[in-house]
């Protein structure tokens, strides 16, 4: 499989009062056509910043300090704003957690969708409107012709997220970045949206990067999973391999933290402490101070990636080997 999107050694820094903060530090990732990659991490791990960088949406005081992002072989880092605009929305699209980030509250849905279509293609208003209606039908919005005349506030939360998804998919993008789009939704609505996205991506061959803190959603949706901690990808690989036999102690800790049927009433395997501030990262491995397997050599240097069988990678000096997490 050839990669549609290839990120290598990406570093994004923000200059703050506390000094230069590396929100993303040496991230290497790729996604192939039709593949679903789950990018998992807790607040402040750099997962959203990675997603924004793909769209060229890092604004001052942040900047891409190093690395490259290649889309179908073409380098995106360093492109002018005009060139990025031609790509964004057409070839690379994004869905945000809050659909109101995408939607303009004072414009009707048809105005916004027609604008999005005509930004990239010369088509008549009538033809654009018809396409907008088709797009709404595809994401499961009933009576789309009437709904096009509505304002965003006239939709429920789940419906609004569908409109945002319809807009993101208008041009059949090759890469779709979804940043926690179902986190604020109820389970039944979340399942409806996951079903729509799953179907649309398989129909159109869109490569999907699904950013979330919820391991369970990724388990059900993704082909591969990448776990981020303090700006770095600490583990990456096929979903089954990573979830059944995690190598990095942080991944193992995350899996142990998820409440589930089999551990009813037992204590959850909690990870002690909390995520470190990116401005004051510990020496050596960032996870060291919270890690149950930490040894003296962990504090020497940031562990470099180890390649394993089946396309797995992890950054750990003392990985979990023969201890699969209790199911």
């Amino acid at each position: 499989m050839t990669a549609v999107l290839d990120i290598s050694d990406l570093a994004v820094t923000f200059s703050t009062r506390d000094g230069l903060v590396k929100a993303v530090d040496g991230v290497t990732l790729s996604v192939a056509r039709g593949e679903v990659l789950g990018l998992v991490g807790e607040s402040g791990s750099g997962k959203s910043v990675t997603g924004l960088a793909v769209l060229g949406l890092i604004d001052a005081p942040g900047r891409i300090a190093a690395g490259s992002i290649r889309f179908q072989g073409r380098e995106l880092v360093g492109l002018s704003e005009a060139e990025l605009r031609k790509l964004r929305g057409r070839h690379v699209a994004m869905i945000f957690q809050d659909p109101m980030t995408t939607l303009n509250p004072v414009l009707r849905v048809d105005t916004q969708m027609i604008e999005a279509i005509q930004a990239h293609e010369k088509v008549s208003d009538k033809a654009a409107r018809d396409r907008a209606a088709q797009a709404l039908t595809k994401v499961g919005i009933p009576s789309p012709q009437e709904r096009l005349n509505s304002y965003p506030h006239q939709f429920s939360g789940g419906m609004r997220q569908r409109v945002a998804i319809a807009i993101a998919l208008l041009h059949g993008p090759a890469v779709l970045v979804a940043d926690e789009p179902t986190t604020a939704l109820d389970v039944t609505i979340q399942a409806q949206i996951l079903a729509e996205v799953q179907q649309l991506c398989s129909e159109m061959g869109t490569a999907l990067i699904w950013i979330t803190h919820d391991l369970a959603v990724v388990a059900g949706l993704a082909d591969r999973i990448a776990v981020m901690y303090a700006g770095r990808i600490v583990e990456e690989g096929p979903v089954d391999a990573v979830l059944d036999a995690p190598r990095h102690p942080y991944t193992a800790g995350l899996i142990g933290s998820v409440p589930s049927r089999n551990r009813r009433g037992e204590r959850l395997a909690q990870i002690p402490g909390m995520t470190p501030s990116l401005a004051r990262l510990p020496e050596g491995c960032s996870f060291g101070p919270r890690c149950p397997r930490v040894q003296a050599d962990c504090r020497v240097a940031q562990p470099s990636p180890t390649e394993g069988a089946g396309g797995r990678r992890w950054r750990c000096v003392h990985p979990v080997v023969d201890e699969p997490v209790p199911a």
Partner: peptide, 13 residues
């Protein structure tokens, strides 16, 4: 969504 339900087809109520 569950950790042990992999690559499933989500259905919709």
């Amino acid at each position: 969504p569950r950790l042990d339900a992999r690559k499933r087809a989500f259905s919709a109520l």
